[in-house]
């Protein structure tokens, strides 16, 4: 029986526990979940921000996007960046982590720091560095001309294909080391004796890599995979600052296009932008779910 006067000791602890986690939980509800619900409601409306009305029919904003060529392009671009960049980055990151995990390797700390270094660059900064490097009047063209590979300067960011390639190269540069750190942390949990045993059994480097390292790293692969997919689907800074979505919206990402539709210059269309944003949310959720399911298959 609890004492009637004041809170019992256990009840006090119970209350303290809830009190500790309430501010953070409330903030997430107010700053993430509630806006998400609002975004969904807004996605069913049309009109300018001051007087919005229910769309007629309700799914009007959603059906509109299929006829929206720029949105389809932005979705295609985002998936192109995803499909090309994420696998290359993760394979490279695992490979680097594997090489750096070798105890016989000298200068491990130095290599690790240098390859991790791009993460120290501010996001907008690195976009602008690559924009300047690949400018028509820029270092990359100067080098290629010097080597005699090209005669005339190439307008890397002015053509759709090369502009996309530059975005992918920039992303690889900035994020490979970041992911490598996850794999290094994962590899440190694998006993070194496992490798020594494999070595004595005469397993080759590749065999060890595929049959020991990769399966043991599976949880880390799933996690970095989800993070990279999430990040790529929300790509914004690079699209805005490297190419500004151009030339003529051919390199624009989904987040960038949504931003332009809501708070960028031009007409603010909150209803339509919210519908597009909701599609991004569903894509993120579905891909994260698939990734978890695929990664969870135990042999």
């Amino acid at each position: 029986m609890k004492k009637k006067r004041g809170l019992g000791l256990l009840a006090k602890q119970e209350a303290a526990g809830w009190a500790f986690l309430t501010p953070a939980s409330l903030l997430i509800f107010i700053m993430s979940f509630y806006p998400m619900v609002q975004a969904f409601i807004t996605s069913l409306k049309t009109g300018s921000s001051a007087n919005m009305q229910w769309a007629e029919p309700l799914i009007k904003n959603y059906s509109r996007m299929f006829k929206d060529k720029v949105f389809m392009t932005s979705m295609g671009n985002t998936f192109l960046y995803l499909i090309i960049q994420v696998p290359i980055m993760l394979v490279l990151a695992i490979l680097l982590a594997q090489l750096l995990n070798n105890k016989d390797l000298k200068l491990r700390g130095l290599f690790r720091t240098l390859i991790f270094l791009p993460c120290a660059t501010a996001l907008v900064s690195y976009a602008l560095i690559f924009k300047t490097l690949f400018a028509t009047e820029g270092l990359i063209n100067a080098i290629l001309r010097g080597l005699g590979i090209i005669q005339e300067n190439v307008n890397w960011l002015g053509q759709s294909g090369t502009a996309k390639a530059v975005i992918i190269i920039a992303l690889l540069w900035r994020w490979t080391g970041y992911n490598m750190v996850f794999f290094l942390a994962g590899l440190q949990n694998i006993e070194y004796s496992v490798y020594e045993a494999a070595n004595i059994d005469g397993a080759s480097g590749w065999k060890t890599f595929w049959h020991i390292t990769v399966p043991l790293l599976r949880p880390v692969i799933v996690m970095t995979g989800i993070m990279s997919i999430n990040g790529t689907l929300q790509l914004f800074d690079e699209s805005v600052n490297l190419t500004n979505g151009g030339p003529s919206n051919t390199t624009i990402t989904m987040s960038h296009y949504i931003y332009n539709n809501s708070l960028g210059q031009g007409v603010a269309n909150f209803g339509y932008a919210s519908a597009l944003a909701f599609v991004v949310f569903i894509l993120v959720a579905v891909l994260a779910f698939i990734n978890m399911k695929v990664g969870d298959t135990r042999d």
Partner: peptide, 26 residues
């Protein structure tokens, strides 16, 4: 509390651009 934590984790999937307009209005 464990259940509440599980719910909070879902916020990881909320894209920033989706909450931009409601948050800006707020």
């Amino acid at each position: 509390k464990d259940r509440l934590f599980g719910v909070l984790l879902l916020a990881m999937m909320v894209p920033q651009v989706a909450t931009l307009i409601p948050l800006f209005t707020m």
